[in-house]
């Protein structure tokens, strides 16, 4: 948005007269306009009193607040089993332990994945499993009672 007197007035209306409160993207252009334009200075001066008044609205010190917050009982953080597992595997806090454990845990992941896949492939690749299943089926057929029911 280009800076002109109209936009400058909008800035003053919305953010007040302190340049620190103006949007960063427009601040330098607004300051340049303020340096070059008497009308801009006049606009600013008309509103200075309001910002001075607002700045006098001081808040209490809240001296005891830190202590109160730090001593309050904290509830247990509810986490799913998966979150607990991930947290156990990869501690997220600022711990020295995490610095070497994280790469180690990550390095183990392909190994775990490979083992998992390998075991599953092994299960399907074993021909005896299929043979045993067929053999058992034939045995059950052979043992079945095919006699005619007597009336």
């Amino acid at each position: 948005m280009s800076m002109n007197l109209q936009r400058f007035e909008q800035l003053i209306d919305a953010y007040g007269t302190d340049p620190q409160r103006w949007p960063v993207a427009e601040r330098s252009a607004a300051l340049k306009l303020l340096a070059d334009s008497e009308q801009a200075v006049e606009l600013l001066q008309q509103t200075v009193w309001l910002d001075k008044s607002l700045d006098q609205f001081a808040a209490p010190a809240f001296d005891q607040l830190h202590d109160r917050l730090l001593k309050m009982p904290l509830p247990a953080q509810s986490k799913s089993v998966l979150e607990r597992l991930v947290q156990w595997l990869v501690p997220a806090g600022p711990s020295e332990f995490a610095e070497w454990w994280r790469p180690a845990a990550l390095a183990c992941l392909p190994l775990v994945f490979g083992l998992f896949i390998g075991m599953r492939l092994d299960l399907f690749a074993d021909p005896s499993v299929e043979f045993m299943a067929d053999d058992a089926e034939l045995m059950y057929i052979a043992l079945a009672d095919y006699s005619e029911p007597q009336e």
Binding site: F62, H66, Q77
Partner: peptide, 27 residues
Amino acid sequence: AAIAAGDQRTYADAVRQHSRAIAFYAW
């Protein structure tokens, strides 16, 4: 991430850093 992991020291730091500003806003 640390607070989510239950790190109370980091939580306490965050309280010290932000609580007053939040209190001013709420007040």
